[in-house]
Write a protein that binds this DNA or RNA. Sequence first.
DNA 1: CATGAATGAGCGTTCATTCAT
DNA 2: CATGAATGAACGCTCATTCAT
Lengths: 174, 174, 174, 174
Amino acid sequence: MTEKQSNILNAALELFSNQGYAATATSQIAKKAGVSEGLIFRHFENKKGLLNALLKEADGRLGKLFGPILFETNSKKVIRRTIKMPFKIGDGKDSDYWKLQSILKWNSEYNKPEKLKPLIYKLTVAFRNLKYKDPDNEAKLLYHIMDNISIEVLKGNMEEAKIFRDFLLKKYKV
Amino acid sequence: MTEKQSNILNAALELFSNQGYAATATSQIAKKAGVSEGLIFRHFENKKGLLNALLKEADGRLGKLFGPILFETNSKKVIRRTIKMPFKIGDGKDSDYWKLQSILKWNSEYNKPEKLKPLIYKLTVAFRNLKYKDPDNEAKLLYHIMDNISIEVLKGNMEEAKIFRDFLLKKYKV
Amino acid sequence: MTEKQSNILNAALELFSNQGYAATATSQIAKKAGVSEGLIFRHFENKKGLLNALLKEADGRLGKLFGPILFETNSKKVIRRTIKMPFKIGDGKDSDYWKLQSILKWNSEYNKPEKLKPLIYKLTVAFRNLKYKDPDNEAKLLYHIMDNISIEVLKGNMEEAKIFRDFLLKKYKV
Amino acid sequence: MTEKQSNILNAALELFSNQGYAATATSQIAKKAGVSEGLIFRHFENKKGLLNALLKEADGRLGKLFGPILFETNSKKVIRRTIKMPFKIGDGKDSDYWKLQSILKWNSEYNKPEKLKPLIYKLTVAFRNLKYKDPDNEAKLLYHIMDNISIEVLKGNMEEAKIFRDFLLKKYKV
DNA sequence: CATGAATGAGCGTTCATTCAT
DNA sequence: CATGAATGAACGCTCATTCAT
């Protein structure tokens, strides 16, 4: 991938995640990326192709975030890591990928809930090991909560989110 | 409000909540509402005015949903009603208002988290009465969970949502 | 049809017939017609729709040109009128319609040779009445010749064409 | 001329003659020719240069087609050969050159009717030798007819064209 | 000789909005 | 109150062409 290509992707990511896909013009992306508009289409075929390229990359980032949890063997630590996960979201880019995914949640074409199945399954096993009565729903519950903290973190309410995280760690005794 | 005005609002609500604001053309709204495009602008000034009118109405609907909880005096019932609330979301219109709010969550111009303050405060009081250790965070937690069930319900996963609701009712012993 | 609509059609006809369909920009048409470019699409849906509207009108003009021949009962006069037909092509508009048809001859989507069947059939009958040996081919031959004179006329070689016409009238003894 | 150069010319010929010059993109030509787009411009300077190169080649092909007629001394055979000429159009390439010429007939920049003068002159002489009354117009007439049969042949109506040819051979008694 | 990344102008089309009727 | 013709800016995208490699 050339430098201009990644310039385009970076610009698109930032704009899509902050203004939405439909509200972002390709001309705006080109301007921000410092390239001609035509180049976007040479490299990504069309506007949708650009979005797809971003989502592919987002998948990878999500995988890296989930990886350490999926390979964790200690059940308590699985839960601990899950609760802490939103704070592992690193630089602005990482957070924009998350935003983008979150924005597309209502778009049936792009919302892929099955991507989270492995994490939820891992949590189910952890809760079962810890003798929770209803591990299935406990797993879903925690996943939902985590999704919410992520959004809080992404919106910049870091302090609030940290307090909330500690509360959860205590609550789950992990 | 004349019939045509409400036709416009209904059409706009359905389209905005399903395709997003930016992705919906005023011509599409006019067509669906069975009115001329010009009429939209006579009544609502511009596209944003239409969105604002919808959000005003959404506020009212949310209020009606929250009302019974805010006036509940029994703390357990406050929590019970909160957990059950997503299932009170009635017809398609109600659910479209909710979707619209959810879609606009990432738009700083339209995201008004303070609207939920009264509910969260009510929950805080309830948890305090029930001797929870950290009623502030418990309230926030429950609100977040409820937000997630709402989305599940809105996406049509009614069965799953019901099981999840019962799980929560048991967990909170309410 | 409003005045602006016919302005658009007139501009499109002149440009399409002189530069070709693909080589004519809708912006050019709008400019020549003295209207905004958007109006073209409101009235004719798209560029092809504009071409179709012109071809419909062209059909009518062709019909009017053929009419007097088809209703002629005297066989000699049928042939005479056919030979003279290219000179009945009136104003510039008429001739542009003819040009347009001629340009589209190689475009299978728009070339409709069956439109000329009635004329060729009429000629066949005329030649049969006049005891020509092979009236079918004589009809086709005359039609082809006429097509060529039309083109000559359209290109502005009026004098040459007139001489050629008189030659044909003498040759066919009509 | 290298192989790539002729690949480009072949691709351009096929596309220009079937879709028209303006409707054909240089990228399409490059793709079909299996070369990079830049190479077209290195070898032919610009799109028009490509067309000019094709028309030069077309001239040669036309010359080869006319040659045997121009060197024929027997007047009857001159006419006979002219009538048969369209059937000498050989492979697809030959026919595409003819199509291209025909398409450009309406383009004053590229229409060169003087190229046919030698053939028409030869026909005039032939008709004069055969004591036709108006050899000038007879020559023009036959040339026009031949042009039409060519188009018929090019469009693939071979059977019809052959019948028509035989009709003409009989009519002219050659 | 040959590539393909890169450009900028222009393409057909859609947009929100205005206004005469 | 309501229409729909009309606008002009912007849209996503394609074009012929250039140029560093």
